[in-house]
Design a binder for these strands. Sequence first.
DNA 1: TAAGTGATTAGC
DNA 2: CTAATCACTTAT
Length: 199
Amino acid sequence: MTPRLNSKFYILKYDSAMKRLDRKFFARDTERVAKELLGKILCREENGVIYRGKIIETEAYTQDDPACHAFCGQTERNKSLFKHPGTLYVYFTYGMHFCANISTEREGYGSGVLLRALEPVENINKTNGPALLCKSMNITKALDGSDLTSPVSSIWLQYEDAKLINKKDIVATTRIGIKKAAELKRRFYIKDNRWVSKK
DNA sequence: TAAGTGATTAGC
DNA sequence: CTAATCACTTAT
């Protein structure tokens, strides 16, 4: 598979396909995926425009966790959390906001990582909160169920050779905006990053 | 600290 | 069916 230099379209498709994080990355322990997503680049293409942001804050949710949307089992709303790892779960809340998660572990088990904040990289600006980042990239319910690992998906994670964020630069603390299981330290962010959502 | 805003879900 | 809740944001 070699890109033809005279075909812009072909190069774009080739480039995108080769750079995407694959299913194996997501098919692991949810907390581990939440930590390793820090520093990765979330990409979204719409109408020929590519939006990019570096993930700098995440939260882990597993089916055995009372704060997880999947805790009471699968419903029409949360079904994407149960799909194969790397599936996007977008939900609508407070009558006006969308939030995005990525399913983890294995098919049939309801778990995922909430994307809470990005550091702008390309064509986005206000991204320091889970609903703000969705707004900045126009992530809506229409994308719920998307396979982030598919070479033709309009939303994906860019593969980066860069090293994982050093453990000493990852802060692990309590999650925001939940009442149940509020003591669990399943929120992770890159230390000293100015785009971390405010408490 | 409270309002805005409507889908989702649990409980009759 | 009804009512409470909600992994948020913005403006007081």
